[in-house]
Amino acid sequence: MAEFSTSVRENGDISIINLKGFLDAHTAPTLESNFTQLINDSKFKIVVNFENLAYISSAGLGVFMAYIESIRDNKGDIKLTNMSDKVFNIFDLLGFPLLYEIYKNEEEAIKKFSGS
């Protein structure tokens, strides 16, 4: 079975989720629980770092869709960073750049949060 794990760090009032491995239908609940936890803790400024993510399926992408509304309703956002070309290609194919800000690295995303 494909491995997937996440870790959450704090940078000021911004929470950074690191993804590692394969995010698919089977592993999606792990990321889901990260989001629900952050929302419960009223932490709505979220950066997701994809650097160590090898694969994402549409069910994995769905997790982002499922929580973005309530996060933006609370003046927060999910910003995505450090995607490999392969992962970006899937996001791009499905039209995610329309809805999400995607940055080269964490610093840019964090700067964007502090700027607004």
Binding site: E32, S57, S58, G60, G62, F64, M65, L94
Partner: peptide
């Protein structure tokens, strides 16, 4: 409930529906 979750996730992700 997990089947429904997965169904929802995969459709939301595929079509950018909220």
């Amino acid at each position: 409930y997990r089947v429904v979750k997965l169904l929802v996730f995969s459709i939301l992700g595929q079509f950018l529906v909220q």
